[in-house]
Design a protein around this nucleic acid. Sequence first.
DNA 1: GTGAGTGCAAAGTGTTTGCACGAGG
DNA 2: CCTCGTGCAAACACTTTGCACTCAC
Lengths: 150, 150
Amino acid sequence: MTINQEFRDVLREEGMRHTWQRQAVWDEIKSNDEHRDADDIFICLKQAGYPISRATVYRTIDVLVSHGLVRKLDIGEGRMRLEHKLDSHHHDHLICENCGRIIEFISPEIEALQSKISSAHGFALTHHVHQLFGRCLSYPDCDYYRSQNR
Amino acid sequence: MTINQEFRDVLREEGMRHTWQRQAVWDEIKSNDEHRDADDIFICLKQAGYPISRATVYRTIDVLVSHGLVRKLDIGEGRMRLEHKLDSHHHDHLICENCGRIIEFISPEIEALQSKISSAHGFALTHHVHQLFGRCLSYPDCDYYRSQNR
DNA sequence: GTGAGTGCAAAGTGTTTGCACGAGG
DNA sequence: CCTCGTGCAAACACTTTGCACTCAC
């Protein structure tokens, strides 16, 4: 997997150029595990003093996605959340509609059932989207938790 | 359930007015089981000769959704597909990336696992999005089927 | 040197909104 | 009548794109 390879080398292998812009976007996305969107990344880089443009951020994200370094997460907000794919296995998401917290979950049972359903319908499964929406009941910093416990 | 109630009555109960525009949008959505989008509905009505506007179609869809008569389906295309909720129980979707076919599936086992996962994470589940993307292997009118069988 | 990459601003896409007019109850 | 609903066009939010310039290799 390209994950542990130098970013510079990953690009070179595909005959793509290494630019500070691409490095900066990749570094920024890698730097934390929140599910930020393209504009968050753009703003962080701007604030850090990089003279980068929004277009480049979007284009770079597409490069990262097509190289399997980053995953786009569509939770129905009309914009894409981003997730780096370092050290992570496949997972799906629980999303708190109240505080926006996103929790990852893994369920081999569900994965197995998905395969079963797909083949039962004559489908060759390529990927899936599975998101559980609800409200935190156990996180003190979620407003909903607060409203339930006041 | 309001499903079998006259549409006129459904609206009246909420103190909303019955207009031919609302009736026409609802009739059009009810008229078939494809998962069309707002613009498809708008175009159908226009072609049928109704002098309706796109804004009204969008506004009416929101009314129908909030009354539980229609469900919006976001399959990551950047627009909403619509589904009337007549005579249907909850289901999720299998989507062919090749021909666009959408097949509904129901899995009580997955539903149960979702509840289990939610409570294990201290979440009160409100709804979920579960879509399986792949390719038809069994539908002769899907290009992918054709390409595999030529 | 030369073409891939960038920045800018403009275009795109699906959807929403402000406002004046029209019609349902 | 008196609102709620509608039509229109403009506004929106996010993302993509055309084009001239630039810089990585």
